[in-house]
Design a binder for these strands. Structure first.
Lengths: 238, 238
DNA sequence: TCGGCGATCTGTGTATACACTGGTGCCGTG
DNA sequence: CACGGCACCAGTGTATACACAGATCGCCGA
């Protein structure tokens, strides 16, 4: 694999799961040494992160990791609702019934284990599969591209969501409903189930605003003070 | 200005106005020599173009300019409708009445000159001003970012639209209506006038599918055959 | 003591040299 | 004559060296 690709994926993952918290400076020398490559591919990786909105140039401090918190959740979900709504509509028009029927079954099968406290990792992978299938079925590469660009930020929000088995199980049921609607090739139903799911997801996210779980990096100050380097890997994992 | 920024703007403009037509290969050596800089900043520029969707890696041929044509217009407007609709709604909720009132006046003032065949360049600048004001007023940086990313592609479509004074005048009137709705801080009206405008714009664009004006680069073959370099500047200008 | 100013210095921006991959064309062989 | 393999080569990917700008810190003067 190309070095720039490795750097990109590594930094991207570190940002998403918080090892590189909002405000952390992405020094070229520091990061290139850490990842064991030269500045050239690293700069390319940083450029991609900036284009994605995961990092941004900050005058005087170089490129820093962008802030994301529950405060942005409303804005992100506002955008997400129209994009996923449109995608669901269009996907329902072209959907492969068998494909989405299968996904619906798998979501239903996942519900009970989640309610019992199962590891949601596998479930997240399943939702990614559904997302990818919708991206494909909506037959609109531009829409799919924008959705992919948005989902990165949504994934970052996961860190702020308490892992509530009841909510995860409900979420799986909602996903099953979406998949069923797509399998039935019913655009209106697909859009409605999607909107419903997003409303619930946002409500759940915001309901935990105060009781957020495992210390998501300094909720008090947006910009962190100094120039302390950020080598340490948090033990906090999604 | 940074060399990479110059390269980016130059290439971007060349792609938008067709000097670099779809399928044209963006060779690093060739372009860096043409623009008088080294490959390093040029690579950065190309990276940004790829992220924007104006270019894409093509196996074996390097990076090439992406295709855009009336065939994609429907997909682009599908996406545009939901994004601009949401932006109009949200902008109407926060709008500065004086700002949008002024824009509305200026659109109205532009209508008659356009009907008389005036140069639309100034009018395009005015629409960009409205777009920027909406981006700002919608108070959602994520939405604004996605809109900006989409507009690049829409601008490319201009080359396919015949410059019809009647349509331009009507378009100006529609923009005035949008601005008025925003000044009135009426979300529903703002969304409706926006949707109306987009429907008309798309209809006009597609009505000229066969009689498109000034030869927009090879409508017959998506991928162009050879390795002919693309130094010559078209005299065709938007 | 505080404010302004200049030197230093860290870190980015650019150029260039090198490595390597993938494609192309030629040659040999069946 | 066609097909497979090999060598060459163009062009990208990466490393490194250099130039330069902005920030920081210390010093000087008021």
């Amino acid at each position: 694999m190309r070095a720039s690709e490795r750097a990109y994926r590594s930094l991207r993952q570190d940002i998403i799961d918080g090892h590189l918290p909002p405000g952390a400076v992405l020094g070229e020398v520091e990061q290139s040494e850490r990842l064991g490559l030269s500045r050239t591919p690293l700069r390319e990786a940083i450029g991609r992160l900036v284009a994605e909105g995961l990092a941004e140039p900050s005058t005087g401090r170089g490129v820093v990791v962008t802030k994301v918190s529950l405060a942005e959740a409303g804005l992100l979900f506002d955008l997400r609702t129209v994009l996923e709504g449109l995608a669901a509509r269009r996907a329902a028009e072209h959907a492969d019934a068998a494909l989405f029927g299968d996904l619906a079954d798998r979501f239903e099968a996942a519900t009970e284990p989640l309610r019992g406290g199962a590891d949601p990792t596998e479930y997240y992978a399943l939702t990614e599969e559904l997302d990818a299938a919708v991206d494909d079925a909506c037959a609109n590469p531009y829409l799919a591209q924008h959705l992919r660009g948005l989902r990165v930020h949504l994934t970052r929000l996961r860190r702020f969501s308490r892992k509530d088995p009841a909510r995860l199980a409900a979420s799986a049921t909602e996903h099953a409903a979406i998949a069923h609607a797509l399998a039935a090739r019913n655009p209106e139903l697909a859009a409605a189930t999607t909107t419903m799911h997003l409303q619930h997801a946002l409500a759940h996210l915001q309901s935990h605003q105060e009781t957020a779980g495992t210390a998501p990096t300094d909720p008090r100050s947006g910009t962190r003070p100094g120039h302390e380097t950020q080598h340490d890997h948090d033990t906090v994992t999604t």
